[in-house]
């Protein structure tokens, strides 16, 4: 899903990213750590931000981009106001996680890995959240929902406002 280089029309202020990178660099921390904190700050990693971080860390832009696309917790696109994460671990799988994900895709009108155009929702599947006893698990903005059934999905979606 290599998107357009600039994800939004507005200029992105990269000064916060530079500051985070400089701070970590002084402590000898790695580029992965920097990108994590930068993503927390911006919600995602835009091309401008990646370029600024690379410059500050004195690594090639291509390496920063390579990292951002290798690791699945990095997002090159803005995430929705409500970020919904469906666990696809084995325990969840044998209890029907695939059906839950599909229902969410249908109900939200977006595929896994996408963000709705109005930036309200984004949907993601994760390979095991380590909450296996609760499977199937859906995490909405950091809140865990366990033993989710199709009917629970209706409730979860209805509560997203």
């Amino acid at each position: 899903m290599p998107g357009e280089k600039s994800a939004s029309v507005e200029e992105i202020d990269v000064s916060a990213a530079r500051k985070i990178a400089a701070g970590h660099r002084a402590q000898g921390n790695s580029l992965v750590t920097v990108l994590q904190d930068v993503q927390t700050e911006y919600g995602y990693l835009s091309g401008e931000v990646l370029e600024a971080v690379a410059e500050e860390m004195e690594v090639p832009f291509s390496q920063a981009y390579g990292l951002a696309t290798f690791y699945s917790s990095f997002s090159l696109q803005p995430r929705g106001k409500h970020h919904i994460c469906v666990c696809m671990g084995t325990a969840c799988h044998v209890r029907g996680a695939a059906n839950i994900l599909e229902k969410l895709e249908r109900d939200l009108g977006i595929s896994s890995g996408e963000t709705s155009e109005d930036l309200k929702h984004s949907l993601e599947s994760v390979n095991c959240l380590g909450a296996c006893a609760l499977g199937p698990v859906v995490v909405v903005n950091d809140a865990y929902h366990g033993k989710v059934s199709s009917r629970d999905v209706d409730k979860i979606v209805a509560d997203l406002e």
Binding site: N127, C128, G130
Partner: peptide
């Protein structure tokens, strides 16, 4: 980095 799906003892 407990990655095996279905394992959460290290967590």
């Amino acid at each position: 980095d407990e990655g095996d799906p279905g394992a959460f003892m290290d967590r």
